[in-house]
Simulated assay, not measured.
Amino acid sequence: MARPVPDPVRPGQESVWDYPRPPRVERIAKRAQIDFGGIRIVDTDDVVRVLETSHPPVYYLPIAAFGDALTLGQGASFCEFKGGARYFDVHGGGGALAERAAWNYPHPMPGYEVLADRVAVYAAPMDRCILAGETVQPQPGGFYGGWVTSDLAGPFKGVPGSMGW
């Protein structure tokens, strides 16, 4: 499938089509917060993002920042760049549970070692994921875990017809 035409980039935006492949990992100076089950389960400014062509960034937060909101979930997957992933169930207030709503790479491939003690969370099952004060939108399609914010220009992998991007 041919690469789609990138959306126009407005002032203050970056295009996901300028992101590299293989992905790049970078620390950012932004606060990330996640609310689930009516409570805040994480609030940290220790944030790392992974940038990959056609994807909104995936944000990795310290596992320790989640306190008791994570338990090891079922299943595993493999990324050709980052390595083997394990999944976590996310627990919130009032007994809220989102199975396999977070993941990490406990033994990442070379170049991605900073991800070992960090976890990423799918935005869709949470009440709210907030980055630098902005409520994020989940990456389209439900399979990928990027967070869409107003400073991004797409189109984003995950929309119908994007399998071959």
Rank of each mutant, 00 (worst) to 15 (best):
residue 156 F to P: 00
residue 10 R to V: 02
residue 89 D to H: 11
residue 19 Y to H: 14
residue 134 E to Y: 02
residue 70 L to W: 07
residue 53 T to P: 00
residue 34 I to M: 09
residue 26 E to S: 13
residue 85 A to F: 05
residue 95 G to P: 05
residue 89 D to K: 13
residue 69 A to N: 05
residue 139 Q to T: 06
residue 151 D to F: 02
residue 45 D to V: 10
residue 54 S to K: 00
residue 32 A to Q: 06
residue 30 K to E: 14
residue 121 V to N: 02
residue 125 P to L: 11
residue 94 G to D: 07
residue 128 R to W: 01
residue 9 V to G: 10
residue 129 C to M: 11
residue 56 P to Y: 04
residue 113 E to D: 14
residue 114 V to I: 15
residue 116 A to H: 07
residue 123 A to Y: 10
residue 12 G to C: 10
residue 13 Q to H: 07
residue 20 P to L: 09
residue 110 P to Y: 11
residue 33 Q to V: 15
residue 122 Y to F: 15
residue 51 L to D: 06
residue 161 G to E: 00
residue 100 R to Y: 03
residue 121 V to R: 09
residue 12 G to S: 09
residue 164 G to S: 04
residue 119 V to I: 14
residue 83 G to A: 02
residue 80 E to G: 14
residue 48 V to I: 13
residue 163 M to G: 01
residue 32 A to W: 07
residue 160 P to I: 01
residue 17 W to I: 05
residue 64 A to R: 12
residue 154 G to T: 01
residue 83 G to F: 02
residue 125 P to H: 07
residue 115 L to Y: 03
residue 73 G to A: 07
residue 54 S to L: 02
residue 14 E to M: 10
residue 138 P to N: 07
residue 38 G to M: 08
residue 138 P to F: 06
residue 161 G to C: 00
residue 144 Y to T: 02
residue 91 H to T: 10
residue 22 P to F: 12
residue 37 G to P: 07
residue 20 P to H: 08
residue 115 L to C: 03
residue 45 D to I: 09
residue 163 M to T: 01
residue 100 R to I: 07
residue 137 Q to T: 10
residue 79 C to G: 03
residue 22 P to C: 13
residue 116 A to C: 09
residue 76 A to K: 11
residue 21 R to I: 09
residue 107 H to P: 01
residue 50 V to N: 00
residue 69 A to W: 04
residue 106 P to V: 11
residue 164 G to V: 01
residue 147 W to C: 00
residue 120 A to L: 06
residue 57 P to G: 01
residue 50 V to Y: 01
residue 142 G to C: 08
residue 131 L to N: 03
residue 134 E to N: 04
residue 111 G to Y: 13
residue 132 A to H: 09
residue 121 V to E: 02
residue 46 D to S: 08
residue 69 A to G: 04
residue 164 G to M: 02
residue 92 G to M: 12
residue 130 I to W: 06
residue 137 Q to W: 07
residue 61 L to V: 04
residue 35 D to R: 15
residue 35 D to L: 13
residue 121 V to H: 05
residue 25 V to Q: 12
residue 51 L to F: 10
residue 138 P to L: 06
residue 31 R to G: 06
residue 157 K to I: 04
residue 107 H to C: 09
residue 102 A to P: 09
residue 132 A to V: 05
residue 113 E to L: 11
residue 54 S to T: 13
residue 115 L to G: 02
residue 35 D to S: 12
residue 3 R to G: 07
residue 85 A to I: 10
residue 111 G to D: 13
residue 48 V to L: 14
residue 49 R to G: 00
residue 100 R to S: 14
residue 66 F to G: 02
residue 145 G to H: 01
residue 135 T to V: 15
residue 152 L to S: 00
residue 141 G to Q: 04
residue 101 A to N: 07
residue 104 N to G: 15
residue 74 Q to H: 05
residue 144 Y to D: 08
residue 120 A to F: 06
residue 156 F to C: 00
residue 31 R to N: 13
residue 26 E to G: 05
residue 59 Y to F: 14
residue 123 A to I: 05
residue 33 Q to E: 13
residue 74 Q to A: 08
residue 84 G to P: 03
residue 81 F to R: 09
residue 105 Y to E: 12
residue 48 V to H: 05
residue 41 I to K: 10
residue 99 E to F: 06
residue 81 F to K: 06
residue 116 A to K: 14
residue 83 G to S: 03
residue 124 A to C: 03
residue 160 P to M: 00
residue 32 A to L: 15
residue 35 D to Q: 11
residue 135 T to W: 10
residue 104 N to A: 11
residue 155 P to W: 00
residue 120 A to T: 14
residue 159 V to E: 01
residue 61 L to C: 02
residue 134 E to G: 03
residue 123 A to F: 08
residue 118 R to N: 09
residue 7 D to W: 12
